[in-house]
Structure formats: C-alpha cells, structure tokens
Amino acid sequence: MKYALLLMGRVDDPNCGADGGADPEEFFAFDQEITSAGVVVSSFALEDPEHAVKVETDAAGDHVVSSGPFAEVQEFVGGSYIIEVDNLDDAIAWAKKSPGSKPGGHVEVRPVAPY
C-alpha cells in the first residue's frame, strides 16, 4: 500500500524550522535511511509557509491571489514522503523514525487512495 507521510510543523513553535530545534542533519540522515530502504515512491520538502501564495475564489466569483505569511495558518506541511509498504504498521514505524514526529511537530500518515 502507498501512504503519504506528511511532515507537519507549527508556526508558533520556536523549536521548528531554521531558528534552532529540529536539526536539519537529522532530516538528512532520515532521508538517507528511508531512501536506501527502497520504500520511497517520491518525496518533497517545502519552503516555509510564509512563502505560500494562495489562490481562491471570492464571493463575487473572481479569483483572488494573495501571498503569505497568513496569520490564520497554525499548522503547515513542511514536506512529504510517498512510501510503498506492506501495511499501516510499517508506515507508522517510518513515521516514528522520522525526526518530523519529534516534539514540536507531528507526522500525519494518510493512505493514498488507490484510484
């Protein structure tokens, strides 16, 4: 089965991101480990949420494009792995290994829909 591991961070968490806390080296080491295990289908990391650009439709039906940082955003996706493993337990085991599940963040495990 394919699962997405969504590495979630919080904007109000001082231990998150470049300001210290979660060590980028740990993420690199994890990336190496999970990649060499041969389970990664694809992966990406995202720039900080302040660089987000939002596209939506307003009440009048017009597109509105706005740029971050957005005050209402508390939690954000910092990166993701799509992995192919046998079952949920294996996916959870990788989520536990990820530095993304250390204090200050969490990893959301989502099955990829089969269609």
Partner: peptide, 14 residues
C-alpha cells in the same frame, strides 16, 4: 481496508 491494517501477526517488537 482504507488504512491498510494488516491481518498478520505483528513483528516481534510490536
């Protein structure tokens, strides 16, 4: 089914 919960006996650690 959606979560892919296994029907096998879990590994020794689990």
């Amino acid at each position: 089914r959606a979560l892919g919960i296994s029907f096998d006996v879990p590994s020794r650690e689990l």
